Amino acid sequence: MQSVHLFRLLFLVLLTASLTGGCSSIPKEQRDPRDPWQTYNRAMFQFNTDFDNAFLKPVAQGYQAITPEPVNQGITNFFNNVADVTSAVNNALQFKLSRAGTDVSRVVVNSTVGLAGFIDVASNLGIPSYKEDFGQTLGYWGFGDGPYFVMPILGPSSVRDTIGFAGDVLVDPFFSLEADEIYWGFVVLRAIDVRAGLLDASKLMDEAALDRYVFVRDAYLQRRRNLVHDGNAPADQDYDLFWDEDALDP
């Protein structure tokens, strides 16, 4: 039942973007072929910023203030260990069998010697971490980014990575938990842990960026492109594979 609700939500989110995300209110000189839904995206970006300032950021600051650093790091390590399971699946789907084996090794070592992942023994042993996701897997098999898309609450994405996010949720070990209260407890704790880890980065971004929306969009797309190509992205830009820039003209 969770998967049905997930895909219904994904469909509604994408439908909302397609219906409300026209570019008619964006000056032509500010339009970007990677971002044809900029009107919607900027509105959602502002909503997410307000939501973060009102709820997520204060909670993350409080969490960081009351949680001892060893415990905080242990929780981060635990969720990173869970992410290695998803990474192993995606590396296998990309036929990167050596990397998939490394991910499995990390999970085995950290889940046993590392006490369920709270201690990152694997990194101390020099076992690399890859953290592949389903969006990267789709990119590996030739799927272009598609239009840039800001997801409610979750933030920057693309059509490809939004679909990939749904795939990652399905293979997440927590998704199989039958007790909803335990599942959502892990989801909330992981979100708070991630946000707490971004507090310093968000402070630097606020000080450096003239247009936070453009800064986040460009940084996200560049990082994702780099990840999909394992750090060897080709020189040509392929963000507009599914969108014709001429179609942006009113």
Rank of each mutant, 00 (worst) to 15 (best):
M1S: 11
Q2H: 12
H5R: 14
F7Q: 09
L10G: 10
F11K: 10
V13W: 06
L15I: 14
L15H: 09
T16A: 15
S18Y: 09
L19Y: 14
L19D: 09
G22W: 09
G22Y: 08
G22P: 08
G22L: 08
C23K: 08
S25N: 13
E29L: 12
R31D: 10
R31C: 14
D32I: 06
P33E: 10
W37V: 08
Q38S: 15
Q38T: 04
A43P: 05
A43K: 12
F45T: 01
D50W: 10
F51Q: 07
A54D: 10
A54R: 08
A54S: 11
Q61R: 15
G62K: 11
Q64V: 05
I66A: 06
P68N: 06
E69W: 07
N72R: 15
N72M: 10
N77D: 03
N81K: 01
A83C: 02
V85M: 06
S87I: 05
A88T: 01
A88F: 02
N90A: 06
N91Y: 03
A92Y: 03
A92S: 13
F95Y: 06
K96F: 08
L97Y: 12
L97K: 02
R99Q: 13
G101D: 04
D103G: 02
S105E: 07
V109E: 04
N110P: 04
N110D: 12
V113G: 13
F118M: 15
F118P: 01
S123E: 12
N124I: 08
L125P: 04
G126M: 07
P128N: 13
E132P: 07
T137I: 10
L138Y: 05
G139L: 04
D145Y: 04
D145M: 05
P147Q: 03
I153V: 14
I153D: 00
G155M: 02
S157L: 02
V159E: 06
V159I: 14
R160G: 12
T162P: 00
T162H: 12
A166R: 07
L170M: 15
V171H: 11
F175I: 01
E178V: 11
E181T: 14
I182L: 12
V187N: 00
V187E: 02
V187Q: 00
L189I: 04
I192H: 07
I192K: 01
D193C: 09
L198T: 11
L199N: 09
L199K: 03
A201Y: 13
A201P: 05
D206P: 07
E207A: 15
D211N: 15
Y213I: 09
Y213M: 11
F215W: 12
R217W: 03
D218F: 00
Y220H: 06
Y220P: 06
L221T: 07
Q222F: 01
R223I: 05
L227N: 05
H229V: 00
D230H: 05
G231D: 02
A233L: 03
P234Q: 03
D236V: 00
D238R: 14
Y239K: 00
Y239F: 15
L241S: 14
F242W: 14
F242L: 15
W243M: 15
W243F: 15
D244Y: 12
